[in-house]
Design a binder for these strands. Structure first.
Lengths: 345, 345
DNA sequence: CAAAATCTGAGGTACGTCAATCAGATGTAT
DNA sequence: ATACATCTGATTGACGTACCTCAGATTTTG
């Protein structure tokens, strides 16, 4: 005997196939008592719906959109590529993926794109965006239209996101802090924290986690204020010079977001490359090269392949109104050192 | 227009549905020229076979077996549970999983089980086992019967395994070495390496990787010979006493396999708990507790959930004679510290 | 050139589910 | 009691593919 089918349930519950179908698909026209009887039978037989057959029968070709900022960032580019790769595979599961880049500086455009997508009958939306009031309001109306929203990389807890796919920013910062403290060992120098900007929620959380561990476990190490580079090497150089001139030597640098190339340049000009413990985020061609070169000591990353797959799986589950396998979708925080770099195919 | 179907191909190639079917399923009775014409049409239309519908039509309920040793090991237990969990999910994909524990000390029994499974018409086999001659011969005859074999955790390169699911033992050892060196910092004490036994391939590879990095990057640190505990705390205690009495203080301990509980006991009795840098392998209740307690500094692990899912996916792909998404199946080597412990669900 | 072998077409049933229809059955208000 | 609304059963045709049969066409072989 194979798996039980709807026919088995109908027999077991003593109702017709049509009724089972109505219960399974939450269609109206069934008494509560009958619904209970069917659900009982389902539980007794351990029935699991054959989603493949269901989708086949539905002939439903759901359309979902994934929105990424068009920021000049290798991480976002890598993520874009990863999603593109998985999207072709997702089409086998009757899901068509639209990958859209929106101007990272203008949330009003993002809001407009979202309302267009909803008007166009999109079935689900995933996006990586900061939680500004404009975005929040836009997402609320997406939600109101019954379209599930999945937050990527940076959570959107107050916008009614159905799910968050990404790592815990606070834990990422704590891990960076622990590594920084352990790598510095007996030394207790100053540590610099550098960000492109502190607007994104995950940067803030990382900083918080970093500070928490440094304060608790390595009180001898002095951590400076966050230096914001806004992506420009010149500004970074300037603020670093200022920070350096203020007092004592720098022993460690924690890079909250992107900007590894700029940092390498500045460090190199200052003769510090490879002489300070440096910890960064996200695995990109730049950070991989930096790890191999030896001047970057550790990278805290999230696996973009998993991120992409998880996003698509969650989207599909939400669209199909299916439950989510939480343990499968929980992204692990990865620590990458020189010796456990992924093979580069 | 949705995706092209077999009917579209038949029209495009100017042949009948039956012929397309014969070509798709490599059934005999089609001229080479016709085969080429059909394949042309497939390429032109960008047809991708709907595996869901295909399996549905086949009604095939493949049966696969997963063989784990019955060793007293929390890692194997955790893996067992993870596979069990995923197996219920896999049944949705028409795959029935038989989870078998074989006596870890007797490879002849494993060989007998394998031949029984093959005789019983199993479609695929995955196993975690050392590559002894008995095992190798048994697997070769499994292969000869056309049943794909997937190696788990420890590779079986000379037994014709169709795929290996697990982390790179050499890289794992290198990573442990790097962490050990960095955590020890300026100190250059002696480091002990402890294993339950050096029979398993992955223990040997880890040790090789560890030595490679220590020798290259931390030449000041002296690494002792591998102490084998054979799972008994008494033996471990004895060999540790001997090692300690020989010369100088111990600064670090690298635990190649299981035995964290025994080590904790011995270290605690010797008043060394928390005073030596300790690095171990695999995430289990014991190692999690040890990380939280603070005496274990790092764990190199493979995600058992991913391992289980990957094994089942690879098995299914092999059984269906489908290609494998290599990048999805490549298990990442995880570094777990106190601050990035997974949330306990 | 006929017989045999090989190839191809046409058509059907099945897989598990969805979605729709129509005909009864039961219950509820007037 | 009649009309009506609400529930339920039985049946059917998709969805895309597999696999089977049988008949007819084409090629190869003797």
């Amino acid at each position: 005997m194979g798996r039980p089918t709807v026919t088995d349930i109908a027999r077991e519950a003593g109702v017709s196939l049509a009724t089972v179908d109505r219960v399974l698909n939450a269609r109206p026209g069934v008494r509560d008592k009958t619904i209970a009887a069917v659900n009982d039978a389902i539980a007794r037989l351990g029935y699991v719906r054959d989603m493949a057959a269901a989708n086949l029968a539905r002939g439903r070709n759901s359309r979902v959109a994934i929105l990424l900022p068009d920021t000049q960032s290798q991480f976002v580019d890598t993520l874009h590529d990863a999603i593109g790769q998985e999207a072709t595979l997702a089409s086998a599961a009757r899901m068509q993926v639209e990958l859209v880049r929106y101007p990272g500086a203008n949330m009003h455009v993002l809001a407009a794109i979202l309302s267009d997508l909803v008007a166009g009958g999109i079935s689900g939306v995933a996006l990586m965006a900061p939680e500004t009031p404009v975005v929040r309001d836009a997402l609320r109306s997406v939600n109101a239209a019954g379209v599930p929203v999945v937050a990527m990389v940076s959570d959107l807890p107050n916008s009614g996101a159905a799910h968050y796919v990404g790592i815990d920013g606070y834990a990422a910062g704590r891990t960076a802090g622990l590594l920084m403290g352990r790598f510095l060992g007996a030394q207790t120098p100053r540590v610099m924290v550098i960000a492109q900007s502190m607007l994104l929620r995950d940067s803030i959380e990382r900083r918080r986690g970093f500070d928490a561990v440094m304060l608790r476990d390595f009180p001898g190490i002095e951590v400076g204020q966050t230096l914001e580079s806004h992506g420009a090497p010149e500004i970074l150089q300037q603020v670093m010079r200022e920070a350096l001139s203020s007092s004592g030597p720098i022993g460690g640098i924690y890079l909250l977001g992107s900007g590894h190339r700029a940092l390498a340049q500045v460090l190199s000009e200052m003769g510090l490359l490879g002489r300070v413990v440096t910890i960064g985020h996200e695995l990109t061609p730049h950070t991989i090269a930096a790890l191999q070169a030896g001047w970057l000591d550790a990278v805290i990353a999230q696996n973009v392949g998993h991120l992409a797959r998880s996003t698509l799986r969650v989207l599909q589950a939400k669209v199909d109104q299916q439950p989510i396998n939480e343990s499968q979708e929980r992204l692990r925080l990865e620590i990458i050192l020189r010796e456990n770099l992924p093979l580069t195919p």
